[in-house]
Simulated assay, not measured.
Amino acid sequence: MNGLLILALAMCLDAVAGEPRWLWSRAPHPAVLMGQAIGALDARWNREPSARAKGLFAIALLVIAAAAFGWMITQLGWVAEMIVTAILLAHRSLVSHVAAVAHGLRQSVAEGRRAISMIVSRDVSTSSSSQVTRAGIESLSENFSDGVIAPAFWFLIGGVPGILIYKVVNTADSMVGYLTPRHAEFGWAAARLDDVLNWIPARLTGALIALVGGAVSQWHMIKSDARLHRSPNAGWPEAAMARALKIALAGPRSYHGQVEDLAWVNGRGRRDLNPTDIDTAVSMVWKTWGLVVGILGLLGFFICVF
């Protein structure tokens, strides 16, 4: 079984099964184990002197361990590779969480805020329905890249070791990569490596969304919009989604009680958003997912036959 077909099957398994509670209530999810390892290294090594060097050593250790564990999984055969890859993808859980935001907003703004607070770190306690909707679409766009396209890309490059390396680096970035006083030095290597590993997948995700959303002709504007984002990578899928839906994303938001006046992505797009826009964005992501699975399946089939 070639890697293209294994990945296509893994993406389908993830889309059908998602994150089964019966399993993860009985066994620790790999992301939880990664988080525990990162937390232990953070607690033990994140101190001066040489916090940056210790952080670099920590991420190198995590990468080596992920590669070694991934190699062991490959020795178990293609079924094991497919199952582990499906577990490390997050398409079904992502769209389910974002769709829940639209469902919540249709009940009340408070319910929408509660649903979005589960997937974003910004302060949404006073957010309007439009702001909650915007946060949901932004999270969907960015995490479709981080949670689906990037892991799939690195599986194609390096098999199970490749996807495990990506996931442990991405998890480390989410835990210690923020520019807080505590992690500015120790988390530097994790944040920079995560930027590198997401550089191609983020732009690929943007291109795929633009293709499905009929916004390829606006690619030069998507590129300009993406550069306005504070992240070197997150702006690409967000900019493509904004152009495909003809809406404005990003803009001012609050973190820890402080309003950050961030630039708008597609600032001339519609800013008054509603739950239907989330539905449209979720549909767009499903269609993009379907395009990727179709391409992988066809290429994998032709490689098997010819």
Rank of each mutant, 00 (worst) to 15 (best):
L89D: 07
P232K: 02
R270C: 13
E81L: 07
S130G: 12
A242Y: 06
L273D: 06
L208H: 04
T126C: 10
V212G: 10
L208K: 08
G162M: 04
S231A: 01
L193T: 10
A215G: 14
A51I: 03
I6E: 08
Q36H: 08
L41P: 00
A210Q: 09
W264P: 07
P151S: 01
L76V: 10
A234C: 08
T126H: 13
A99V: 13
P201T: 03
S174R: 07
A80F: 11
V169D: 11
K167S: 13
L156C: 02
A90D: 09
A86H: 06
L179S: 12
A100Q: 01
L273W: 06
A66Y: 03
H220G: 04
W286T: 05
R230V: 14
W45H: 13
I119D: 10
G267E: 15
S125P: 05
K287L: 15
D173Y: 13
A239E: 00
S130D: 07
H91E: 05
W188H: 13
R52E: 14
V120I: 15
G300H: 03
P28Y: 05
W236L: 09
A250H: 04
I157N: 07
D225R: 00
M284K: 10
P30W: 01
V259L: 15
G162H: 00
L197Q: 04
S141I: 10
V79R: 15
R203Q: 05
P181L: 08
N198Y: 02
N274E: 12
R92T: 07
A191N: 06
M118V: 11
A80V: 03
H97E: 12
G77L: 11
Q218A: 14
A215V: 07
G39L: 02
D146Q: 08
D123H: 03
A67F: 02
D195T: 08
L61E: 10
A110M: 11
A226I: 01
E142P: 01
S121Y: 04
I209H: 09
V124A: 01
V160S: 00
N2Y: 08
A40P: 02
R243A: 13
V212I: 15
L88C: 11
A172E: 00
S125D: 15
W264M: 06
H29V: 03
L56M: 12
V84L: 14
M175Y: 09
R92N: 02
S129V: 03
G136V: 04
A234I: 09
W219Y: 08
A67D: 01
A115P: 09
L62R: 06
G159Y: 08
G251C: 05
L299G: 15
C12H: 11
V79G: 13
D14T: 14
A86V: 09
Q218Y: 09
E238G: 11
A90H: 07
R21M: 13
M175K: 08
G214Q: 09
Y255D: 05
L273S: 05
D261H: 14
D123W: 04
D225M: 02
